[in-house]
Nucleic acid binder design. Sequence first.
DNA 1: CCCTAGCGCTCCCGCGACGAGAGTGCCAAA
DNA 2: TTTGGCACTCTCGTCGCGGGAGCGCTAGGG
Lengths: 356, 356
Amino acid sequence: MAAPQSPPQLSPRDREILRDVILAYILSAEPVSSRSVAKQGRLGLSAASIRNVMADLEEWGYLAQPHTSAGRVPTRAAYHLFIESLMQSRRLPARERRYIDEALPSTPGDAGQLMESATHLLSELSHQVGIVVTPALGETVLKAIEFLPLSGRKVLCVVVSADGFVDNKVIETEEALPREELVRIGNYLTENFAGTTLREIRARLLKLMAEERAQMDRLLARSIELARAGLSPEQGQGVLVDGTRAVLDQPELADIGRVRRMFETFADKARLVSLLSQCLRGNGVRVLIGDDSALTSELDFSLVATGYGVGERPLGALAIFGPSRMEYERVIPLVTYLGERLSRALAESFAGDARS
Amino acid sequence: MAAPQSPPQLSPRDREILRDVILAYILSAEPVSSRSVAKQGRLGLSAASIRNVMADLEEWGYLAQPHTSAGRVPTRAAYHLFIESLMQSRRLPARERRYIDEALPSTPGDAGQLMESATHLLSELSHQVGIVVTPALGETVLKAIEFLPLSGRKVLCVVVSADGFVDNKVIETEEALPREELVRIGNYLTENFAGTTLREIRARLLKLMAEERAQMDRLLARSIELARAGLSPEQGQGVLVDGTRAVLDQPELADIGRVRRMFETFADKARLVSLLSQCLRGNGVRVLIGDDSALTSELDFSLVATGYGVGERPLGALAIFGPSRMEYERVIPLVTYLGERLSRALAESFAGDARS
DNA sequence: CCCTAGCGCTCCCGCGACGAGAGTGCCAAA
DNA sequence: TTTGGCACTCTCGTCGCGGGAGCGCTAGGG
């Protein structure tokens, strides 16, 4: 088997044919024959001519055949080329944009809802798996923190971030604290730390504690204790996944082994997060195809991902996961638009922020 | 094909053999031959004798053969009989009890965590799908309600139920309210309505509103407005599902069509809830096998379910979902124990309730 | 009366052969 | 440079055939 030659400049006709093959394969999931491309009649060529070109394309490494005398299938290189320069339609159709705008709650209330809607939209509009990585709480900016007495030494800590995320957790204090004290602590923390990230708050509190260990007043001491517990950064970034059911219809998943491997991929949330975190920085969509990552190589799956955030601050990522044979022309604009839309929605809830 | 005779009293030997067949099938997932039962040598009988009994059992409707001259497979009736009277081991082994006790957070903080742990434990210990229906918020008893100002007219409403459930949602008021007013409203509502269910509170507020529409004072009016929005019973019962990945290993799911149908079952949460709600009342485990419900008939799947609650008040249900060929001897005690354990955990967090 | 050994029968399953169909590669002609 | 034609190759579904597993039945023994 000859090593794939480094591809020379592809002639316009080569590109045209490669494009047709890819489009046909995306549609049918079956090896594309020269005849079918010819019959489609986009360029007035016969099957034999197309065969010649396809043989060349195979030599360049853009096409492959599952076995002799079968049709051709695009390789990863072909998909990359397709996305880079063969693809048309860089913009999401207006009706889908409208659909998204309507489905995304315009006054999002809780940002968590926003995230869920976005995940669902991703999968619904692409018929693939939609993935959204929610912000690491430590990176969000504090807007307010509040403590409510429950029973005994249990205290409910409510953290509201400037981006609209609300998180609450039950913590246990060393001694029972009266309601008024809790309110004062909440006020103290909110007044002093609103506008900084939770991670930073933690760091500053620790420093404070170390410095004035001796002459700490009660309020400060209590505040530190509660804030440490309430702002504990244990909760890393969350991953929302939707649409696993829809993607079962793809012929790529006719084999159960693959279904199982796919679910194993999703089960390893930590790995997903670290993979997607790379897509945080740099605006624009990143596409991982097949061997680009161990995650997708075996399955012949792709990941189309982008980041979202407020201003320059990256917060999370969103992605579509599905067979490499994917409608990139639809999916890429979708991810792009939803990423922008999400950033905007968060920014707006941020802009409407009148410090209380 | 002869209609299955109504079974006479089964002799002890019949029961013994039926039991062996069921156990073997549960283990192997393959039709059980008379030879394999004989060779197991529990009773010193030859294959031929066992064949006779098995032929009888088939006539009574307890066994079936996929085709002539294949081994036998238990029917639904067999499973029911097995659960009723053939099964041994009515108690969960001590080590699993201990494992559960350790895994279940002893001071549960948020009851939501408790639910998630329980779901995971169900699937982990059974290698099937674990399902937990969380309480309908409307049925929970109010412990405290609190309002925090966000920005503009947005208010964060935090509802704490006596059973340890915490829920928060962002609502929008007609006009911006100062923080002190929000605190007073929260106090007013908490003082007047702690101890009653959210559903009842809503009803009473509506009645109040209708009665004194004219001379309502501001506080009451505001309270009603906020409580209506904050206690809106939209959020029905939630369903937690875990372990779909583990169950993919079952040979019953070698066919993708079944995998798809299984996921469709889970997608229809409303149906799941209504099915499981039947298991709320009446203590003890309920087992639905195959044709007992449209949900499972096609898949040959079973549902082992029980309810949990505090005192006489049923709150939710938990269940294990998997192939009818299921280790009932393990699974039933597991569901039972976890149901009790969950009820107890909720009751304890309830008992520790010192009104603040 | 119940159990057991033996025998014939039925059905599944894996294997190899075979033919149809689809697609390619190559060559010669326009 | 393109095209039509032809031979070649590979897959896939079908068929037939044995091997094997398991059952039903019956006759003989405790």
